[in-house]
């Protein structure tokens, strides 16, 4: 976030720091007014929030995700009965990454000229590595992302902390992997990253398996939205827009919430998703078959013009 001082021009800062001629009381009054202005601006900066577009989340978070804070996004825990070596984390990691990227897209709309630092191991193994084509389809310019590939998880998080200290970035994302299993180290990292984010005002997002959320601003559990059963396997008009079951299970100054949501690329907004809705879509007569095209044609703020049956 912009601090109060950086928002002011150098001329104003210089003028504030110089003693003015004339009555001492007036001078003091001006100084107090300037200080008050700075404090107000700084407070506004600290409390600026990123709306999630979903009323349930926004009200639970008091307006949205806070800047200058670290948010923990993880996939849901492996359910009871599943083997420990389940490939479920790998399978749904795309969904978790997609949710973080959608949030990033919203941040990058606010700061289109700032880079994003993504700290991750170089070879993500079975979880795969981020693809530029996929980023573009979320709406993110891949050139805006700078990757720090460090194989050691502790060093990877060190890069995350270093980046988070820096003002001038849109956001910083870190993949922590199995680091969260070492509880003492994890708690120390939580404290350090929280302090770093507050210093710079940059939003931080951590991405990985379920981890203790204490010390972070919010904790999210993301899983892909499982659509209702369908009689046909091959479906041509299926809505492949990303959709998730998002659960805000921890909010430091809020309350938990949960919702099924989907991402609309054209308007760069999260949209609520009804559980009962079958997402098999049929394009209306005379319109293009792609719901993205239809939604663009109807304006970004409107729902896509397709029939739900």
């Amino acid at each position: 976030m912009e601090s109060a001082i950086t928002q002011m021009s150098p001329h104003h800062i210089l003028q504030d720091s110089l003693p003015q001629e004339g009555d001492k009381t007036i001078y003091r009054k001006d100084r107090f007014a300037a200080l008050k202005h700075r404090i107000t601006a700084a407070e506004q900066g600290q409390t600026a929030r990123l709306s999630c577009d979903i009323p349930a989340f926004d009200s639970a978070l008091g307006g949205g995700l806070g800047f200058g804070r670290v948010h923990l996004v993880s996939h849901t825990a492996i359910p009871q009965g599943k083997p420990a070596d389940s490939l479920l984390p790998s399978m749904i990691n795309g969904a978790v990454s997609g949710f973080v990227l959608a949030l990033l897209r919203k941040v990058m709309m606010l700061y289109p000229d700032r880079p994003v630092i993504w700290c991750a191991p170089p070879h993500a193994g079975m979880t795969g590595s981020l693809s530029a084509e996929g980023l573009r389809q979320i709406g993110i310019n891949p050139a805006q992302l700078i990757f720090v590939h460090e194989s050691h998880p502790a060093r990877c998080m060190s890069a995350f902390e270093e980046a988070l200290q820096t003002d001038g970035l849109a956001a910083v994302v870190g993949e922590y992997g199995m680091l969260s299993r070492q509880s003492d180290l994890w708690q120390r990292w939580a404290r350090r990253t929280r302090r770093a984010a507050r210093m710079s005002g940059t939003i931080g997002m951590l991405l990985g398996p379920p981890a203790p959320v204490c010390g972070f601003e919010t904790g999210w559990h993301i899983s892909p939205y499982a659509a209702p059963l369908c009689t046909r396997t091959v479906v041509e008009n299926y809505d492949w827009r990303p959709s998730w079951q998002a659960s805000l299970h921890y909010a430091k100054s809020g309350r938990p919430a949960s919702a099924a949501i989907k991402w609309d690329w054209v308007s760069a907004r999260f949209l609520p998703l009804e559980r009962s809705v079958n997402r098999l879509v049929q394009p209306p007569v005379g319109q293009l078959s792609d719901p993205q095209i239809n939604s663009q044609a109807n304006g970004p703020s409107q729902q896509p013009a397709y029939t739900i049956r």
């Binding site: 795969g128 693809s131 084509e133 573009r136 805006q144 700078i146 792609d290």
Partner: peptide, 29 residues
């Protein structure tokens, strides 16, 4: 070092007809 204007074209709505994954396995499994 940081150039937001690198030669990445944003996909057209027509290109969105063929979605691409956000994570790729290298090499494919």
């Amino acid at each position: 070092k940081y150039s937001p204007h690198l030669d990445w074209q944003m996909p057209s709505p027509a290109q969105m007809l063929a979605p691409r994954p956000v994570r790729l396995l290298d090499p494919p499994e």
